[in-house]
């Protein structure tokens, strides 16, 4: 006899039994123990057909293949650059993934990416030992010049981007800033100082109220009010 013990969008803690019986399937953030499906992290329940998934509410960013992230150059070695990814693991960007330019043997690599530079990169591979490879070859991937980088919780990133990028483009339109949101929870903002400040304030507001419904309208009103001042 199978039975679902939780509702959609309910908050569950590790060890909580989500369902009994074999009719449901354990998804992300859950595991099966005999007949039961049990939560393995703090999260919101999401039901997808027969699968039970958990949307994490907390936690560090863990690199995933295909993610577009904002990273910082922390070391320049002979065959590429080591990048900080705002996660427990640093990433490697090899020479051939860094630029379309021809790099002569023995060239000074700091003229392409120097220590402390920020860049938008894409993760092309993550091994079982969490060795991360990042590429700069792709649409929208580039070195970041000027602007500033702020950190947000990585599990709030989908809310900051919004449905099909609606939220971030709204902030862009209202503030006139260039904004790039990395999946790893780093956000790059460039504009006039006042506008940058407003954009950061807005992002912080989204981060704090990310669990509320009707957030887009609220943020819209907030931005309009802030611009009138």
């Amino acid at each position: 006899m199978s039975k679902l013990l939780v509702n959609e969008k309910e908050i569950v803690v590790p060890g909580e039994t989500l369902a009994t019986g074999m009719d449901n399937l354990p998804g992300n953030g859950t595991y099966r123990d005999g007949e039961n499906i049990i939560a393995s992290r703090l999260g919101l329940v999401q039901l997808e057909g027969r699968a039970i998934k958990l949307i994490p509410l907390a936690g560090r960013y863990i690199p995933k293949t295909g993610d577009t992230i904002i990273c910082k150059v922390i070391d320049v070695s002979i065959n590429g650059w080591r990048l900080d990814t705002n996660s427990p693991y640093s990433a490697m960007m090899s020479l051939k993934d860094a630029t379309f330019d021809f790099i002569a043997r023995g060239a000074d690599l700091t003229q392409y990416y120097d220590l402390g530079d920020y860049a938008v990169g894409k993760i092309i591979n993550v091994t079982s030992q969490k060795l991360v490879d990042v590429t700069m070859k792709g649409p929208g991937l580039r070195k970041l010049k000027g602007g500033r980088v702020v950190e947000v919780a990585s599990n709030k990133v989908p809310r900051i981007i919004g449905k099909a990028g609606s939220m971030v483009s709204m902030i862009k339109d209202a503030t006139g800033c260039n904004i790039t949101v990395g999946q790893n929870g780093l956000v790059w903002i460039e504009g006039t100082p006042e506008n940058e400040f407003l954009a950061i304030q807005t992002i912080r507001k989204i981060e704090n109220e990310s669990h509320l419904s009707g957030l887009t309208d609220k943020i819209k009103a907030y931005l309009e009010k802030a611009k009138k001042k």
Partner: peptide
Amino acid sequence: LADAGLIMKDL
């Protein structure tokens, strides 16, 4: 540990 979002079997 649960609040830190770590993967745990139980509390």
